[in-house]
Design a protein around this nucleic acid. Structure first.
Lengths: 186, 186
DNA sequence: TCGACTTTAGCACCTAGTATTATATGCACA
DNA sequence: TGTGCATATAATACTAGGTGCTAAAGTCGA
């Protein structure tokens, strides 16, 4: 009996901490109706760090997260790249990229993936987007893995014409044409 | 002499905390070569909270920040909206929105601002982007305030034709045409 | 009813502070 | 030359939210 209750309690504890990471041992003790000492023992067994360590961890990781979120998440992961020719990138659609109501991915994530992949292809120190022409073919939902393939189709002076086709599960969901312009050092 | 050094030191302190928020009073005291008590007095005068309060604040706000960053920052601030007609939004270009080399804003931020503004105009429960046609006219740099004005120019069935013009300091930097499609409940 | 597990209690100690009071140092001006 | 004032340091008592350890009490199954 006691053994079952212990395991159950430890599960509850784990959940409580995950949901509300800012609870002290005392508050946890009240919530689970045991003594503070029991909470401490349980934390020890479960390897849950103390309140202050938890907040510190969150503060540290969250700090980095905010910095890197735009660089990595928004643009996807570069899978293959032939500079000046073609490239492939992968973007996983997560919960926070979709509309709350429809669960459909916001359009600018596909645009961002395609645009940054297109820019990565250009074999020049600097380049900016001049024109973009995009078409959304099929709505994309949470969990889908978007594979974008980009190809430079023409180069005229400092202008690069790049086509990007994005597929999810072998179905084309998005298509873009970019005209990118390479710049001299300022 | 002492008075000047105090002000200087307090400036250094403020900077040190901003750069490395996880330093204890003792570490700060060593860094600035004064006693721990002096650091405490300075913190009191400057209104800098203690280490644990700082980390707690960061942990709390950062937790929310990670969630809202894409919803708010990426798309800008809605200044005015006439549903079904027109709208205006503002996006401030910050350090992390630009290319490290050229200091020019990445194209998808302008796209995101325009796209989300266009979607906000649509007077329907759900809508997605069908086609986008965008043109980048002038490179945008850190600190610029982008004002996007969107207007629905035509409606045909469930298709909305929206034009967005983005200006920075009264100069048009970006222009987009969207065809948005409103959806029925699934 | 015994032994093992579980729970609670108590105490010393730790870190990173707050709040307050006292003392020392320096410099400026009469 | 001393006196006054700002600044800096020190000392002490107290706090929250713990760790680590030992001891005692409760519970339960065989």
């Amino acid at each position: 009996m006691a053994r079952v209750r212990k395991k159950e309690r430890q599960e509850l504890l784990r959940e409580a901490v995950r949901e509300k990471p800012f609870l002290t041992d005392f508050e946890l003790a009240e919530k689970l109706e045991v003594s503070v000492q029991t909470i401490r023992l349980d934390r020890l067994e479960l390897g849950i760090p103390e309140l202050r360590a938890r907040t510190r961890q969150m503060a540290e990781t969250a700090q980095e997260k905010v910095k890197t979120i735009r660089q990595d998440d928004v643009v996807g992961e570069l899978l293959d790249l032939e500079l000046g020719t073609s490239g492939i990138s992968l973007l996983r659609i997560t919960e926070d990229m979709v509309f709350a109501k429809s669960h459909i991915a916001k359009g600018y994530y596909m645009f961002s993936q395609a645009n940054s992949l297109a820019l990565a292809l250009i074999d020049a120190p600097m380049a900016v987007t001049g024109v973009a022409n995009v078409k959304y073919k099929v709505p994309v939902h949470v969990g889908e893995k978007l594979i974008a393939r980009a190809e430079i189709v023409r180069v005229r002076g400092n202008k690069y014409f790049v086509w990007v086709k994005t597929r999810s599960d072998n179905r084309e969901v998005f298509r873009a044409k970019f005209i990118l312009v390479s710049l001299e050092e300022e």
